[in-house]
């Protein structure tokens, strides 16, 4: 259990990151707000509570690694990295522009703090498994976290990686599945039938846990639990709401990719203002 002060601080931080997300997408005139808002609390918990990082030393060898496998949600990662000081917050206004350090999807060579390039779906688990194997071979104790979309689980390489990670017993690898129930073209049920996610990962030999992906106590608890050696990689099935925090974006897949206009941005920022419960 988190104490009230920590819980409140994390919630405030997540609201701030969400405001940065909608503002960044508005300013760029492009981006994926819905998927970013859905994993904002997971990203907040990881970067502000769970992960061992040093923003002044982005390439620190012993840092925990993070892969945003659902790279299209990158505005929330960029928001966190900017807020933590990896780069100036002003860079957010250049998102997706020519010459920007903030590419349309995460780029490990252009953006300080991005541990791995992503955007082509399916790679968080197999690449993360390579990182986790590297930690073990080097005798280092860093951990590897990835956030994978539920629609993204359609990609076959996810399961190639899941199989290998389990066979290698990489218990320093933690994959969140941001389970918001939608993918680009509709619900995961109607497009791909990607259901029974927990059972699928369990069958692949993963340790699994199911949580509310907007509850900081549950997110942090689930991560803390993975620190005990188990010989298995962990999948945390996080039940989330696509567009979480902005009423007109919630569970509305039009906001998978969509740009709030000036009036919509103003409404979103009111809803995400400090002091409000989401």
């Amino acid at each position: 259990m988190l104490n009230q002060e920590t819980r409140t601080a994390l919630a405030a931080k997540a609201r701030r990151l969400r405001r940065m997300v909608v503002t960044t997408v508005h300013q760029a005139g492009d981006g994926h707000p819905g998927p970013a808002l859905s994993c904002a609390d997971i990203v907040t918990a990881l970067y502000y509570r769970c992960m061992r990082i040093d923003p002044a030393w982005p390439r620190w060898e012993d840092r925990d690694r993070f892969i945003l496998s659902k790279g299209h949600a990158c505005t929330v990662l960029y928001a966190a990295l900017a807020d933590l000081g990896y780069f100036p917050e002003s860079a957010l206004t250049t998102f997706r522009s020519l010459g920007s350090i903030l590419q349309g999807h995460p780029d490990m060579n252009k953006t300080p703090g991005v541990d791995m390039t992503s955007g082509s779906l399916g790679h968080g688990i197999p690449v993360g498994a390579g990182m986790a194997a590297a930690a073990r071979l080097a005798g280092r104790d860093f951990r590897v976290y990835t956030v994978v979309g539920d629609g993204e689980l359609n990609e076959g390489i996810v399961w190639e990686g899941a199989m290998a990670a389990a066979r290698m017993g990489l218990d320093n690898l933690v994959a969140f599945v941001d389970c918001n129930g939608f993918q680009s073209g509709g619900t995961t049920e109607e497009i791909s039938g990607m259901n029974r996610i927990r059972e699928r990962f369990e069958a692949f030999g993963w340790r699994c846990r199911e949580i509310d992906g907007h509850d900081f106590d549950q997110i942090v608890d689930a991560v803390e639990e993975t620190r005990a050696p188990s010989g298995k990689p962990t999948m945390i099935l996080a039940r989330t709401v696509k567009g979480k925090g902005v009423s007109f974006m919630e569970n509305n897949n039009d906001w998978h990719k969509g740009v709030p206009d000036k009036e919509q941005l103003a409404r979103a920022l009111v809803e995400l203002a400090d002091g409000r419960e989401l």
């Binding site: 060898e61 690694r65 390579g130 590297a134 390489i157 290998a164």
Partner: peptide, 13 residues
């Protein structure tokens, strides 16, 4: 595909 991706993870470390 996983072999190539896994290798990239190793290389990044």
């Amino acid at each position: 595909q996983a072999a190539a991706a896994f290798a990239a993870g190793l290389a990044s470390c």
